[in-house]
Write a protein that binds this DNA or RNA. Structure first.
Lengths: 158, 158
DNA sequence: TCAAATTCATTCGTATGCAAATGATATCAG
DNA sequence: CTGATATCATTTGCATACGAATGAATTTGA
């Protein structure tokens, strides 16, 4: 980027110094949080254009159940990064549509087991190819190499 | 990372090939949408730990008004990436707390003008330094060079 | 000019997302 | 063994987020 080359330590120092230059100006457009929110919005929009009858969280729940099989509602929430209140709503809606079924855990009576129905299994098998297209379209503004770099760094942030 | 070393071209080739190998397996954890959602969640959590009395969208509205001054509710929504229904809720809540005030546009009677109150101006001036800390903490898992790369690629996606 | 199209704002319905409180059950520690 | 803790699920309340429908006001175009 046309800057004099510097070591890792120098980069760290530069970052600290860079906070000072113009303390007055604050540009929302440059803040990682704001851009992250916009990138997420764009992805959700792309998702909806390919898969109209399911939201990304609903898809995540089905995909994870397809991957690991029956599990408790709470455990599922942990695996797909949803708190207990959120995952309950997602499972309730999938249940209402016949894509998952719930049952009580035989031993631990606190637990609610969740599993795919045959219809849920059929649905996720049908949708996974579309999900690959969604990923491709989301990453389309980047070259293959950039996409790989981006995913690596994004994973470090998540 | 324990992979055999390869050139940039080889990495590119490997990425393309990697799409085919096992068409059966689908790992939610590797999908850009899922990681994007998690990274966004983490940022919101960091934001809340620094600024408890305002949400990121509310902050965005105040910061943008601070930057550009009075504008219409619709235009503000465009600038901070919120649709009309969402921005209305955000402005309503900021108005209820006395941080913004609204008025009718003299000429175009459809428009609702929004502006900071003195309290709103004081608030955003107080919060902007905290926002810088939030950005730093969000990017903390990355080196300075990685953060710059990440922001560049993220901006291309958003 | 005047009907059609567009823009701005609002409202409604649905779906995350999370904090906090609650109740039921299970586990742990003394 | 039992009281203190911890875990699982639910509920409530609040705040985005967006599609769709609506109404008011403005702009466009034939």
């Amino acid at each position: 980027m046309g800057r004099p080359q510097m070591s890792g330590e120098d980069n760290l120092l530069r970052l600290v110094e860079a906070e000072e230059p113009d303390e007055n100006s604050y540009h929302l457009q440059d803040q990682v949080g704001f851009i992250l929110r916009k990138a997420h919005q764009r992805h959700v929009s792309i998702f909806a254009s390919h898969i109209a009858d399911l939201t990304p969280p609903q898809f995540a729940a089905l995909a994870k159940l397809y991957d690991i099989g029956e599990t408790s509602q709470n455990q599922l929430g942990t695996l797909i990064a949803m708190d207990a209140a959120t995952v309950k709503g997602v499972i309730d809606r999938l249940k209402a549509r016949g894509l998952v079924e719930v049952s009580k855990h035989e031993v631990d009576k606190r637990r609610l087991l969740v599993n795919l129905t045959p219809a849920g299994r059929e649905a996720i098998e049908r949708l996974i190819p579309l999900a690959r297209a969604i990923t491709d379209e989301t990453l389309a503004p980047l070259t293959a190499k950039e996409a790989a770099t981006f995913l690596r760094l994004l994973a470090k942030l998540a």
